[in-house]
Amino acid sequence: MNAPTGRRIRVAVVFGGRSSEHAISCVTAGSVLRVLDRERYDVIPIGIAPDGRWVLEADDPDRHAITAPDQLPSVDGDRSPVTLTRTGSGTEIVVSDAAAPPQALGDVDVVFPLLHGPWGEDGTIQGMLEMAGVRYVGAGVLASAVSMDKAYMKVVLAAAGLPVLPWTTVTAREWEADPAPARARVAALGYPAFVKPARGGSSIGISKAHDAGELDAAVEAALLHDPKVLIEVSAEGAREVECGVLESLDGGVDTTVPAEIRITGDHEFYDFEAKYLPDEATELDVPAVLPEGKTEELRALAAEAFLAVGCEGLARVDFFLMADGSLVVNELNTMPGFTPLSMFPQMWAATGVDYPALVDRLIALAMQRGTGLR
């Protein structure tokens, strides 16, 4: 995993972004910046502001933390702009400042894109990095795009023979022109139903419609975040169980012990506040206590889902353990929550891979994988 010239591996940590998960991406970046070994890596933090500006951000983990529920971190778009520039020897980072000539920071060996949601986790930045010819951590263009779009993800998983919940999709164009057919499709699925932005994350914009009277408001709330909405039947009485998947350096696939999320208090489902804000009533069981044989079945299904979508690097596969004992794949996240307290790192820690080792492994995987078709 040595850099081509024998110097430290230059890692560009890219975070923030234009999606509604901007703040969570900043929190994730702070966690990774904290554990990167500066004797092994030359670290360059690059922030993408909410308006899309790329800047050289502070290498300060504490600046990128949630300090209070109403004080979420954000990239400072007024910092020095940066660009990725293709050269004859590779791709380098150039910093521009109105008060000084452009400064080249040298070739980038690998990008660690810690972006959640659209314009980052959805194949867009992956495509840009492919065009720039620079290695990057995580899934490629197609796997990122398919996994981000919950509707197409279900199509791919179902085609691979994996169990998914019944669903329908509604577009903004259809809803504005004539919502009646969409209401009829949801009625055929049955209530209660979950209404989600098709390409969102962190439970932002998700509502539970208990009956037809709540559907319109739920769809309108989801459309604020995405012009395509996924509506699926609620897995009533199910347990929410997750599994981490990670490529091995020899080309295989490893999985974690499963973990379970239990929601208590006033939260009916695993919403944004329950996921990220302190003192919320969420209990995590790592490992999950499952019926005999279910742990092995779930880990095998997680690996199948990872391969079916064509993932690389890492993914978290979320399941419902239904009341009848069957397992259903809920969704697949190619850049899951990645703070030390997030489920993905906690599951790997319980499986024997601690947080710094997890970060090192992902960089090593990216370094041994080139760009282009693979």
Rank of each mutant, 00 (worst) to 15 (best):
N2Y: 12
P4C: 13
T5V: 13
R8K: 07
R8P: 10
V14E: 10
G16L: 02
E21A: 08
C26K: 05
T28V: 04
G30W: 03
R38I: 06
E39N: 15
G47Y: 02
A49I: 02
E57W: 05
P61W: 06
D62G: 11
D62R: 03
R63E: 06
A68Y: 13
Q71H: 15
P73A: 02
S74M: 10
S80C: 11
T83K: 13
T83Y: 13
T91Q: 02
V94L: 11
A98N: 00
A99F: 12
P102V: 09
A104I: 02
V111L: 03
P113M: 11
E121N: 00
G123W: 00
M128T: 14
R135E: 05
Y136V: 09
V146G: 07
K150M: 03
L157E: 12
A159M: 11
A160P: 14
A160F: 03
V164W: 14
T168K: 03
W175R: 01
D178G: 10
A180C: 13
V186T: 04
P197T: 04
P197R: 02
G201V: 05
S207R: 05
A212N: 04
L215I: 05
A221V: 14
A222H: 01
A222L: 13
L223F: 09
L223C: 04
L224F: 14
H225W: 14
E232W: 06
S234N: 10
A238W: 09
R239S: 09
C243Y: 08
G244Y: 08
E247N: 04
E260A: 10
E260D: 06
E260I: 04
I263H: 00
T264F: 15
D266E: 15
F269K: 07
Y270H: 10
Y270F: 15
D271T: 00
F272C: 13
A274L: 02
D279H: 15
D279N: 12
A281V: 12
T282E: 11
D285H: 12
L298I: 09
L298N: 00
A300S: 14
A308T: 00
A308V: 00
V309M: 02
C311N: 02
F319T: 08
L332C: 08
F338L: 04
P340Y: 15
M347N: 13
A350W: 06
T351C: 06
R369M: 12
G372I: 05
